[in-house]
Computed example of a mutant assay.
Amino acid sequence: MGERDQVLRLLGDAGVLEGIRWAQGSAYRQVQQDFNPAGGHDQGWIGYNAYKYLLNRLDRVFQCEQYMAPDGEESVGRDVLADGMIGRDYQTMRLLPPDAVNRRDLNNSPGWMAEGWRWLLSSYKFGQVDKIRWSEKSETKATVARQPHGCDDGGLFPMTAIPALALPENPTDREREMRQTLVLAHAMDPDTLEFELFLGRSRWNADGGSAWVWKQNMLDLPPELGNRGSRLQPLDPTTPRGDVVADVELRVRRSARDGGTPRAIGEA
């Protein structure tokens, strides 16, 4: 079994993939609802708020930081998890066992870890996930992309063929954690309001090649993958069963771009 399949199986069985997809869907529905280009919102506004909402939803679904469950409890209070969200999002949120996912930041870059695998967030230009230049991102993202790996990334030679970058037989905990750090890449088109989400191992692409050793389109995963380790958030009688606010009416606009060149939403 290759690394990609192994990661997807581990995180899927633990319910993590479904939690990630829920977090992204909830975050970007909120962005779509709040986005007001006529009022001055632009792609920079999308980038900043998409990052903040996604950070919040990941912490919420995995019960990290301010949503951490008290010792001995299986969940933080329902009122805390539901606060500030539309009812539909709360009702479809997966409930994982306490500590199934932990916050594991890297150099102040928010990160989450489950089943020995950590992931960080990165935005990119919609439609150009393979063209991300890690040298233009933060030093943290560049460091992650430089990590040696045992996969065939399509380069001129494998990373493990370089003696200085060869995988040690007994790596330290820090080395193992660094080399098992993935990137969750997200983007939204400010004209059509379409969004994308990919999880994968980033690749140092100073050679001009692909930004990924491997990646998975999270929106293409079958619905049943990721439900086995989690259950739906139980409803509370005081929690609205309908949306607290009306469903967002998507303002799909024709693109004014020439040649279909994607636009950036900002880096987060």
Score class of each variant (00 low, 15 high):
residue 99 D to H: 07
residue 82 A to Y: 05
residue 91 Q to F: 02
residue 33 Q to S: 15
residue 32 Q to I: 06
residue 46 I to G: 03
residue 61 V to D: 09
residue 46 I to F: 01
residue 62 F to D: 04
residue 93 M to Y: 01
residue 42 D to F: 00
residue 42 D to W: 00
residue 41 H to Q: 08
residue 102 N to W: 02
residue 54 L to R: 08
residue 32 Q to H: 06
residue 91 Q to W: 04
residue 52 K to W: 03
residue 40 G to Q: 01
residue 81 L to P: 12
residue 67 Y to I: 10
residue 79 D to M: 06
residue 75 S to E: 06
residue 31 V to K: 06
residue 65 E to S: 13
residue 80 V to D: 04
residue 91 Q to E: 07
residue 106 L to A: 11
residue 38 A to T: 12
residue 32 Q to N: 15
residue 80 V to L: 07
residue 104 R to D: 06
residue 54 L to E: 04
residue 76 V to Y: 01
residue 85 M to C: 04
residue 38 A to C: 08
residue 86 I to M: 10
residue 43 Q to M: 04
residue 41 H to D: 11
residue 102 N to E: 09
residue 47 G to Y: 01
residue 103 R to P: 05
residue 70 P to W: 01
residue 59 D to A: 09
residue 95 L to V: 01
residue 55 L to M: 13
residue 106 L to Q: 09
residue 102 N to T: 09
residue 50 A to N: 15
residue 90 Y to L: 13
residue 42 D to N: 03
residue 67 Y to G: 13
residue 67 Y to N: 14
residue 48 Y to T: 14
residue 105 D to R: 03
residue 78 R to F: 04
residue 51 Y to E: 11
residue 34 D to G: 10
residue 38 A to N: 12
residue 76 V to P: 10
residue 79 D to H: 08
residue 38 A to L: 08
residue 68 M to W: 08
residue 35 F to H: 02
residue 90 Y to N: 11
residue 43 Q to Y: 02
residue 86 I to K: 13
residue 34 D to W: 05
residue 88 R to F: 05
residue 43 Q to C: 03
residue 53 Y to F: 15
residue 43 Q to H: 05
residue 37 P to W: 00
residue 52 K to P: 11
residue 84 G to V: 04
residue 35 F to Q: 09
residue 38 A to Q: 13
residue 52 K to D: 09
residue 66 Q to C: 14
residue 38 A to D: 12
residue 48 Y to A: 15
residue 77 G to M: 08
residue 68 M to I: 14
residue 99 D to N: 13
residue 38 A to F: 03
residue 69 A to K: 10
residue 90 Y to G: 15
residue 71 D to C: 11
residue 45 W to P: 07
residue 106 L to I: 03
residue 102 N to H: 09
residue 98 P to R: 05
residue 67 Y to V: 13
residue 57 R to A: 14
residue 106 L to Y: 01
residue 37 P to V: 02
residue 76 V to E: 05
